[in-house]
């Protein structure tokens, strides 16, 4: 049995230790906000927070996540995440939306670590998250707007 702490809730899962956290979250627990895009930590659609750190759940074996606090898009509820999501909605950042959970997880982690990031810091924090609709202009604007609300 694997014990997981997801969104402040403890779960016991009967899965192999090498199952990636992504599939435990999606297929076993049914939280579908976290997406599959590449399976090799290239696109960032599967980003969750593990002890507050943005983590690619598609390459993180569920076995190494025991005793860690995992947050998915469904569990976001901080001042920062609310500012990010409010900015995303106000600017209509999304297009197809498939990557956006990962983008929001990455942006929230960035602003929690650095509430007033430079362009370079935004690029560094966000360039692991692919958006095929190329909503990058608005993601950047959304981060800046959330930052203004927080600082």
């Amino acid at each position: 049995m694997i014990q997981l702490n997801i969104n402040d809730q403890l779960y016991e899962l009967d899965v192999e230790k090498d199952m990636p956290l992504l599939w435990a979250i999606r297929d076993v627990l049914g939280f579908t906000g976290t997406k599959y895009g590449c399976g090799i930590a290239q696109c960032g659609a599967c980003t969750v927070h593990m002890d507050g750190v943005p983590t690619r759940s598609c390459v993180t074996p569920v076995g190494v996540t025991q005793n860690k606090k995992i947050t998915t898009i469904e569990g976001l509820n901080s001042k920062t995440s609310r500012a990010v999501q409010a900015a995303w909605e106000r600017l209509d950042v999304v297009q197809c939306g498939y990557c956006q959970s990962g983008q929001i997880m990455a942006a929230t982690a960035l602003l929690e670590a650095q509430p007033d990031p430079s362009d370079e810091q935004i690029n560094a924090a966000m360039s692991g998250n692919i958006c095929r609709c190329a909503t990058y202009v608005r993601i950047r604007a959304g981060i800046r707007e959330a930052s203004r609300a927080l600082v």
Binding site: T32, G33, Y36, E74, Q85, E89, V94, G97, Q100
Partner: peptide, 15 residues
């Protein structure tokens, strides 16, 4: 579709 796609609640085939 902004709200659902910003909160992880929009449903795709994968979901």
């Amino acid at each position: 579709d902004s709200r659902d796609k910003t909160h992880g609640t929009a449903i795709f085939t994968q979901d």
